[in-house]
Amino acid sequence: MTEGPLLSLAGVHTHIGQYHILQGIDLEVPRGGMTVLLGRNGAGKTTTLKTIMGLLAPSQGEVRFRGQPIGGRRPHANARDGIAYVPEDMGIFAGLTVKENMTLAAREGAFSADRLDWLLTLFPALRKFWESPAGVLSGGQKQMLSIARAMIEPRDLLLIDEPTKGLAPAIITAMIDAFRELKRSETTVLLVEQNFLFASSLGDTVAVVDDGRTVHRGTMAELTADAELQERLLGLSLEGHS
């Protein structure tokens, strides 16, 4: 096995048209556990995920996965290499059943029955609505389907963009429980999240982005314990927000 972080970004810049969005992202995602990417709206978090996945090409800097450069590589090649991306807009097919959505997400339309059973245990609502159109699911259930689709095959790295956005507190609590189970597997997660209760409950390591640059890297425990650091980096206290 290659030593070092599973994923690393060094001095990454990304342009979208004439706009210089990322202006120096440095990030390391250790193998196993969850790394959380925090920052204000518009800081560059989603652009960072899209650059890793290959949906955007970096204009400068280096993206490495398992020690190998992948910056600018096409998304399908990254998917074949074990990276999955769950976008903020979920990307599910509302007119297809839950089963059909899951089948489409699996290469060649086949998946392990044991893995499917594990996923349906993580997200029991999907079992209940297995033969129903995905469009009838609630917002939280659609988010669960989106995550399950990305996990239908074993992945080394899961990129997830704001899974709790717009969800009710009870659904967020259920999502925390599901992610705790996910952390017991060997999947490494890089999570963009605005809900700080969710982030601090699950994160192992954290990076904070501001104006397209990495301004802090460390452990989530360190950030959670330091209200002054939270205020300086994020303009708020984690313990006062959920």
Rank of each mutant, 00 (worst) to 15 (best):
119 L>P: 08
121 T>Y: 08
123 F>W: 12
124 P>K: 13
126 L>G: 09
126 L>T: 10
128 K>M: 07
129 F>Y: 15
129 F>V: 00
130 W>T: 03
131 E>F: 11
136 V>G: 00
142 K>W: 04
144 M>P: 01
145 L>D: 03
145 L>T: 07
148 A>H: 05
148 A>C: 13
149 R>P: 10
150 A>E: 01
150 A>Y: 06
154 P>A: 05
155 R>D: 00
156 D>G: 15
157 L>F: 06
158 L>C: 11
160 I>N: 02
161 D>H: 14
161 D>S: 13
163 P>F: 09
164 T>E: 00
165 K>M: 12
169 P>L: 04
169 P>W: 06
173 T>P: 00
173 T>F: 02
176 I>R: 10
177 D>Y: 01
179 F>E: 01
179 F>R: 06
182 L>A: 04
184 R>S: 12
187 T>I: 08
188 T>Y: 02
188 T>H: 07
189 V>L: 07
192 V>R: 10
196 F>S: 10
197 L>Y: 15
198 F>T: 10
198 F>Y: 09
198 F>C: 08
203 G>F: 05
203 G>L: 05
207 A>T: 14
209 V>F: 04
210 D>K: 15
211 D>Y: 14
212 G>V: 11
212 G>L: 09
218 G>M: 03
220 M>A: 10
224 T>G: 00
224 T>C: 01
226 D>V: 12
228 E>P: 00
230 Q>K: 08
231 E>L: 15
